[in-house]
Design a binder for these strands. Structure first.
Lengths: 201, 201
DNA sequence: CGGCACCCGGGACATTTGTCACGGCCAGGT
DNA sequence: ACCTGGCCGTGACAAATGTCCCGGGTGCCG
């Protein structure tokens, strides 16, 4: 019996997946969580063989949680399941020690099979996505550029960002300008979108 | 036997829902589509009793499709299923003649029951959401304000928006300024976010 | 040690954005 | 006939944003 942990914030999706996977004769869903910061605790209790993690979760990113699991529950294989096949996500997932990366398009039938594959030690990745991730290259943004960009997603002004990062306004402007240049865009909003699309957030 | 049409763009979600609903003894999924502009055609062929529609679909919004169905397949009840419980969405769904409005949080078990309820002629709406929709009041934005705001979502400049709407730059500025005022925000980006959160897009 | 990249900041400048006051046009309702 | 509200535009102005150039500090690597 494969013991499975399921982390997904959308209640209906989580319930549906749990039911479907539970119907497989060799899979047992031993834990379900709706928040990223509950993953490690649940895994320590339930001792799953495989963790199926969404990326965009409240509390803690599924990618961060994957890294945590590698350290604290190393026997547990991690399978990332996400809406967006962003190259940067795939890259980060691999760096966090994930054994597989699936997007929520594509048929449900693949899911159970993917679980079995990672448990056999295989790595499962959509080939087209892998190619995109390689051709895209690594994240060119420095840490602070990323911070500044991330702090500006919800329409914050330079002053807001400077305050939240404890920086001077001049510094923030420089970081943003640099990020805009590196993304090849014309303003903050475009830069944010471009960075998000690449999974650089 | 309840004949059901399912419109949902995320392949995995669509497949999971189809399987789950198909397992109900009194429900039969007679059509599945992944695009909004395929809904009416599919309904004309499959003649479903209930259409379960996501809102954010490629091609055509599920809300628009709901209005189309009311005209072209009036016997078909419409049940909206969406990720975001925005007040404006609920309002528009009701105006489009929807018989129910569900959010993708909350348990899967409710789903089949909601289908049966709308078929009995009942209206199913989350009570908390209904309250929010009423307290929020109607959309205060005029048509052109909405257009200008919608055209600025992906970081377009004033010049871009003016070109895409065939307007003068001054006019666009005035609309945006007005929209910013009505949303009580400080700039375009915040206004877009606020309008989206309300379902005013 | 000398580069190099990242971090942090200042100053000056052009451009963009947001605001305000003001026109005119047209449709609707009183 | 008048008023109201949406639509479209202009001009002027202050504020925010983006760019460029400059400085200094740190730590890492060859």
């Amino acid at each position: 019996m494969i013991r499975l942990l399921l982390a997904e914030d959308q209640g209906m999706m989580r319930g549906a997946l749990a039911l479907l996977l539970g119907m497989e004769h060799d899979i047992e869903v031993v834990a379900q969580v709706g928040r990223g910061d509950e993953i490690v605790d649940a895994a320590l209790v339930a001792r799953p063989d495989v963790a199926l993690l969404d990326i965009e979760l409240p509390g803690r990113s599924g990618l961060d949680a994957a890294a945590d699991l590698r350290d604290e529950v190393p026997d547990c294989k991690v399978l990332i399941l996400t809406t967006f096949g962003r190259p940067g996500y795939l890259r980060r997932a691999m760096e966090a020690g994930a054994a597989g990366f699936l997007v929520k398009d594509g048929p449900v039938e693949d899911l159970a099979e993917a679980v079995r594959q990672v448990l056999r030690g295989e790595t499962v990745i959509d080939p087209a996505l892998a190619a995109a991730a390689l051709s895209a290259g690594p994240n060119p943004l420095t840490g602070r550029e990323r911070d500044a960009l991330a702090a500006s997603v919800d329409g914050a002004t330079i002053a807001d960002i400077a305050a939240s990062l404890h920086l001077s306004e001049s510094t923030v402007r420089n970081y943003l300008s640099s990020a805009i240049g590196k993304t090849g865009t014309r303003n903050r909003m475009e830069a944010v979108r471009a960075a998000r699309r690449q999974g650089w957030l």
